[in-house]
Design a protein around this nucleic acid. Structure first.
Lengths: 266, 266
DNA sequence: GCGTTTCTGCGTAGACCATACGCAGAGGCT
DNA sequence: AGCCTCTGCGTATGGTCTACGCAGAAACGC
């Protein structure tokens, strides 16, 4: 009962450092952290595509196959890299802080992390959060929603709402920024060019809503951070409406969240 | 002025069929659509990893290098595959239909598309939507928000909100479903196992919010579709609040969307 | 102190991969 | 008829991940 981790998948146990290193053989010349750090360094400097097992190995001064004593598979390495590079979540919800600023900060933190290490957006999500920092982020996100009256599944859905939007947003802005860097333009120029391309391809066809959008085009050079905050504000408004409704008609017994308060999706 | 597509990137022109085929040389034995269709078929049957240029070529009975007469790069092929496989958006907003059901249907359509062709979630998003079906989806999404009083950048942010959440949600559920299929379990079992793993790794540490979550655990076997709808409902509520506020204080002149109506992010 | 056991780094090799280059020949254009 | 362009594609280069097995290092049992 000191080791309930029997069932944990290898990669998870590895990430949490739950593998008791054996004392028999020769000492390891590296640590898992070193391997992960080397991978991150390469990804940060030359992009995710530059991260190959041989490249990481040569960075560490060992042979390629040595890495497989530390990591079962390349994809596990990538997962660990993401978990480490994401880092710990921002300052947790203060004692007398409301859920709204806390969740907002959590969302901002997601965007900031992805912007700091842009290569992470190319590592496909491999499942629900289970690695150490991911779990810490989850803890913080849920902590922001404690005591709001939201049910378990609702708290999770709210977290996913924010993180999904943060990821989309960060991906889009980073894609644009990198496209700009590649072509030696400013992000504004790249954005403008996109609208031009969109106008070109939609010109012959029936795209009234897009044309209407393009016609309002004097806000191209908008502050993109403002747009992000707009979306985040909408999410938080929606969550707030639900919380208030729950507070008004407290703790419905069991099942289905019928039509009380805020309206259903459709 | 018959060809304003001079500036369009090669891959975009290709996707829109704007490359005037030359009439000089021998006839092509394939069409771009055939190549794309073959790629989709392989991805659908054996996963994205099975899609290699040589595999696609052999499926079509041609040599590997022949494909490069149709597609500049493998990644362009993947983009085209996604665009085609996504398919056209669902039924557009009806004449007297409100924005809410239309946008909800748009979101559902996103999830449905990703679930129908699960491999698509592994193709990284390469920028803002510019390929034919992507643009059609954009058109429909914007059409749902026409006449709501939302500004251009706000309509876009709202669309991103929904599509980002849809992508997160579809990715999570498909990951679980595939993990289940791989291990011969039901998705419910996989979900349960995740909570167990989470409990195991968080057992020694201070994770109050997660433990609280796990303690409410009699809804593990929840209807996941209900959770998705919950999140979508929150987004739409948030957007609705903004629309109503805009309607109350109509058409603020120029700039900043200050603190009118629904609250700011923080 | 000496096997024995276990673990380490890693060399080799296999099975792929995307794609640059250039050539033979097909087939409209003049 | 001759030209010129475009097609399919064979060859080759320089990668990729990782399975396998071996030599030697280090701790344990006796």
């Amino acid at each position: 009962m000191d080791k309930p981790d029997v069932e944990l998948p290898e990669s998870v146990a590895l990430a949490w450092g739950l593998r008791d290193r054996p004392s028999r053989g020769p000492k390891r010349s590296l640590s898992l952290d070193q391997v992960v750090a080397a991978g991150i360094q390469i990804a940060q400097g030359e992009g995710l595509a530059a991260v190959s097992m041989s490249r990481v190995a040569s960075e560490l001064g060992v042979a390629t196959m040595s890495l497989y004593r530390y990591v079962p598979t390349k994809h596990d390495l990538l997962d660990l890299m993401v978990d480490t590079a994401y880092g710990p979540p921002p300052r947790p919800r203060g004692a007398d802080e409301g859920w709204r600023p806390a969740l907002a900060r959590w969302g901002e933190g997601n965007v900031a992390a992805l912007r700091r290490q842009p290569w992470m957006r190319h590592v496909p999500i491999s499942g629900p959060p289970i690695n150490p920092n991911q779990v810490r982020w989850l803890e913080y996100g849920l902590a922001a929603l404690r005591g709001t009256g939201l049910r378990a599944s609702e708290r999770i859905a709210a977290i996913m709402l924010v993180s999904g939007y943060a990821r989309s947003w960060a991906t889009l802005t980073v894609d644009i920024a990198e496209g700009a860097a590649r072509t030696g333009q400013t992000p504004e120029e790249v954005g403008l060019r996109y609208w031009q391309h969109l106008a070109t391809v939609t010109a012959p066809g029936p795209y009234p809503a897009i044309h209407e959008l393009l016609a309002e085009g004097d806000e191209y050079d908008d502050d993109t951070d403002l747009e992000w905050r707009f979306g985040l504000g909408r999410i938080l408004d929606g969550v707030a409406a639900m919380i208030e409704a729950r507070a008004a008609v407290p703790a419905r017994e069991a099942g289905r969240s019928g039509g009380d308060g805020p309206s259903d999706a459709g």
